[in-house]
């Protein structure tokens, strides 16, 4: 008994040192990618603003901030799944489910906090199902989450009979619509919520052992298992967090729109994954950070917003975002090759 305990203790120490090592090299990589994104963001804002100065108006920045907030919350969760070398295609469907559960609870007369909990619980359940199927049964995450995506969407349409739920109470909508006044600055409440969640995720990744395990699972799962860390539990936790964050995102979106549609967020999973990838999350696992995800999301929304300001046809947007993903991945790849050559 004693012996086993020491072995686990030793294992954890080893894993921790492995994790610490990989964290340092990750930091070097991530900061580079974040700087690239930040530079792109500045250039985009300058070009759009030069063309149409209305871009810099406070109302537009608020509009952008509100759009970034709920989108980034979902991207944070997906980026953690990508960190462990997985993928989560069910986030869009979970967003719709959470919105519909929350709205149904509000219609049933439940107070706002309980209704939000109902929505988040839905996300937690789906995340747990994804996690167990991927980590315990060893099924490929792409297939598992593709399946739950369809399943969850079907259930959501079933709950609502296909019709959107409207007439949500004003103090619930305030979550997504109200602005806070911090001195002379007005900041959307949803952006503050996003920042809080981002700080929490950042603390989890940077300051806890679980966070180190998450990075290590993505880089070298075998090593982690050899030193006795239950990598399956780490993965399940990550899928659960992704489900919970997607649900939070769905609740925020619903509060902003004041309507919960069963067809909401259809196809958003790919944009959310794209935001995480643009922000520096590597689909090979083990790389990425909170700041990058938020910057990646912001860049995507600024580009979309910029299309309207520059007067470009909006059907070219998906093309532009596709080109952006390829460029970022290509830069990353070339950089890595140079590093490898020394």
């Amino acid at each position: 008994m004693d012996k086993r305990a020491t072995r686990i203790g030793l294992g954890q120490r080893q894993a921790r040192s492995v994790a610490r090592l990989s964290r340092q090299s990750w930091r070097a990589l991530a900061s580079r990618q974040e700087i690239i994104i930040l530079a792109c963001l500045v250039v985009a804002a300058l070009v759009i603003g030069l063309w149409n100065p209305n871009f810099y108006q406070a109302t537009n920045l608020l509009n952008l901030a509100r759009g970034v907030s709920w989108f980034a919350v979902a991207a944070l969760g997906v980026s953690m799944v990508i960190l462990v070398g997985g993928i989560d295609l069910s986030v869009g469907a979970v967003m719709a489910l959470a919105g519909v559960l929350c709205a149904s609870a509000l219609h049933a007369g439940l107070p706002v906090p309980l209704a939000i909990l109902a929505g988040v619980a839905g996300g937690l359940g789906v995340g747990f199902l994804n996690g167990v199927l991927v980590a315990r049964l060893g099924l490929p995450p792409f297939i598992v989450t593709l399946g739950t995506m369809g399943l969850v969407r079907g259930v959501t349409v079933g709950i609502t009979n296909g019709a959107p739920l409207r007439d949500l109470p004003p103090h619930f909508r305030a979550l997504g619509q109200h602005d806070l006044y911090l001195g002379p600055l007005s900041v959307p409440l949803s952006l503050v919520i996003m920042a809080l969640l981002a700080v929490l995720v950042s603390l989890l990744l940077d300051r806890t052992i679980l966070g180190r395990y998450i990075y290590t699972v993505g880089r070298d799962e075998q090593a982690l298992r050899l030193v006795g860390v239950p990598s399956a539990s780490v993965k399940i936790t990550v899928y659960v967090l992704s489900g919970v964050l997607a649900a939070c995102s769905g609740v925020l979106m619903t509060a902003w729109l004041g309507v919960a549609a069963p067809t909401a967020a259809e196809g958003y999973e790919l944009e959310i994954i794209a935001a995480a990838v643009i922000g520096g999350a590597s689909l090979f696992g083990g790389e990425g950070g909170v700041l990058g995800v938020v910057l990646g999301t912001t860049l995507m929304l600024v580009v979309r917003n910029g299309f309207v300001f520059l007067g470009l046809p909006t059907y070219l947007q998906s093309g532009a975002i596709g080109a952006m993903i390829l460029t970022v991945v290509l830069i990353d790849h070339l950089w890595r090759r140079r590093l490898a050559r020394g």
Binding site: N52, N54, F55, Q57, T59, N60, N63, G67, P164, M253, W256, L257, V259, A261, T263, A264, A265, E266, G267, R304, N305, V308, F309, G311, P313, T314, Y315
Partner: peptide
């Protein structure tokens, strides 16, 4: 006609498109 935006039959995309245009063309 200064802008034609697509909503992809999606409520939130439609809302964002309308607000973007309102902002760009005061």
């Amino acid at each position: 006609i200064v802008a034609e935006v697509t909503s992809n039959e999606d409520i939130s995309r439609g809302v964002q498109g309308v607000e973007d245009v309102m902002q760009a063309h005061r």
